[in-house]
Computed example of a mutant assay.
Amino acid sequence: MVSDTDLFKDIRPYRDDEVAGAIQRLIHDDEFIGAIAKYRFSTLFGMGGPVIKALIRLYLGWRWRKLNSVRQIQLEVASYMDKMISRTTSGVTFSGLEQIDPTKGYLFISNHRDIAMDPAFVNWGLYSNGLDTVRIAIGDNLLRKPCAAELMKLNKSFIVKRSVKGPREMMKAFSELSAYLRHSIDEKQSIWIAQKEGRAKDGNDKTDPAILKMFYMEGKRQKIPFTDYIKTLNLVPVSISYEYDPGDQAKARELHSKASQGAYEKREFEDVESIVQGIVGQKGRVHVAFGEPLQGEFESADQLAEAIDQQIYANYHLFPSNLLAAGQAVAGHQDEVKVFEQHIAQIPTELKEMVLSMYARPVENKAKVSN
C-alpha cells in the first residue's frame, strides 16, 4: 500500500531514512566538492585542486558520519547559521512569536527579499524559541544542479514546479502542491512560502493572488468554500526587514537593464550567485515580525492578498537606512547616517535612484496602512 507521504515523493523533503544516502551522494558529487574548494581555498585550489578536493571529502565524511536524521541535519545547519549571523549581521531580532501555538502547523507567507536567507531567518526565530522549523517552498529553477537539490531537500525544502509548460501540466503540478500544503498542515508541520514568485527587487512587497488561489485548489476539490478553507490553513503573514540588502546593486542592475534596454538576460547560474551573495554579504540588522494568524471572512483571493499585505506593511521594522532613503531625518543616529552615506556612495551613479527607492518603499507602504 502506498503511504500518503509517497504520493508527494517527487516534491517532498527527504525523510530520516533518506538522509544517509543523500549525504553520500553529496560527498561524491565532484561539482559540489569543487565549489567548496574554490570558495574556501581559492588561493590553494589552483596549485593542488585534486588534493584539496580529496581532503574536503575526507573531512566531510568524518564530519557528517553520524548524521542520519533531518533533525541532526538541522542542528548542523544551526551551527552554520550561528556563525553566519555573527559575521554578517549586527543582530537578528524577532516579534510576534508568542502568538505561535507549538501544537499547530502554520502556513507562513512572507515578503521575499533574499532567496535563502528569508526562510533561514524565519527558521532561526522558530528554532531559537523552541518551536519546530518549517518546510520551505523552493522553485525548481534553483535546483538545476543535483547537489543543490540534495542540499535543499535535506533541509526540509519541497519543490515548486515552476518550469512545467502547458495548462494541463501546470494544473496538475499546482494541484499536487496544494494537496501537499494541506497534508503538511494536517501533520502539524509548518510551511514557509513567499508571497509572490521571485524576489521583490524594487522593494515593493505585494502578495500575488494566484499563490492564494493555489492554496485553495485542494479546498475547491473538497468543495469547501474559500473563506472556510483558508481558516484551516492557519495563515500567518511575516515581515522580514533587512537594514542592508547584500543584493541591492544586483537587483538595481536588473531593473536598470529592463528600463533602459527593455529586457534583462539572466546568466545560467545567477540565482546560485545570488544565494551565496545573500549568505556572505553584510546585512546590518535584521528583524523578523510574525503577524497574527488570519481568521477573517475572506471571500476572494484578492481580498485575502490585501489583508496579508496590510499586516506585512504594518509590521515592517524601519531602519535608519529606510528612513534616510525616504528623505526623512534620523536625529541621534549619526553613525547610522555615516554608514548609509558610505553605502550609497559606492553604488554606480546610474543605479543610485533605484537603490534609494528600494530602501524607501517600506516607509511608503507602512505609511499607507498607518494612515
Rank of each mutant, 00 (worst) to 15 (best):
N68C: 02
N68W: 05
S69T: 14
S69C: 00
S69W: 00
V70Q: 03
V70R: 04
V70M: 06
V70H: 11
R71D: 15
Q72N: 07
Q72L: 07
Q72S: 09
Q72H: 11
I73W: 01
I73R: 10
Q74H: 13
Q74Y: 12
L75Q: 14
L75R: 12
V77K: 09
A78H: 13
A78R: 14
A78V: 12
A78E: 10
S79A: 11
Y80T: 13
Y80N: 14
Y80A: 14
Y80L: 13
M81Q: 15
M81N: 15
M81V: 05
M81P: 11
D82N: 15
D82G: 12
K83E: 13
K83L: 13
K83N: 13
K83F: 14
K83M: 15
M84F: 07
M84E: 14
M84V: 12
S86W: 02
S86K: 15
S86M: 15
S86P: 13
S86A: 15
R87H: 13
R87N: 10
T88C: 15
T88F: 12
T88W: 09
T88Y: 09
T89Y: 02
T89W: 02
T89F: 02
S90T: 06
S90C: 01
G91F: 05
V92P: 08
V92T: 04
V92K: 06
V92L: 05
V92I: 08
T93N: 10
F94M: 07
F94S: 08
F94Q: 10
S95K: 07
S95E: 10
G96N: 03
G96A: 00
G96S: 00
G96H: 05
L97W: 08
L97Q: 11
L97P: 03
L97E: 10
L97H: 04
E98K: 10
E98Q: 07
E98T: 04
E98F: 01
Q99E: 12
Q99S: 11
Q99T: 11
I100A: 01
I100C: 04
I100F: 04
I100R: 01
I100G: 04
I100Y: 01
D101Q: 04
P102A: 05
P102G: 02
P102S: 02
T103M: 05
T103L: 11
T103Y: 08
K104N: 08
K104A: 03
K104I: 05
K104G: 01
K104M: 01
K104C: 07
G105R: 01
G105M: 00
G105F: 06
G105L: 01
G105W: 03
G105Q: 08
Y106F: 00
Y106W: 02
Y106R: 02
Y106I: 01
Y106V: 00
L107P: 12
L107R: 09
L107K: 04
F108L: 11
I109H: 06
I109P: 03
I109M: 06
I109F: 04
S110C: 02
S110E: 03
N111A: 08
N111S: 04
N111P: 05
N111R: 07
N111H: 04
H112S: 06
H112E: 00
H112F: 06
H112D: 06
H112M: 06
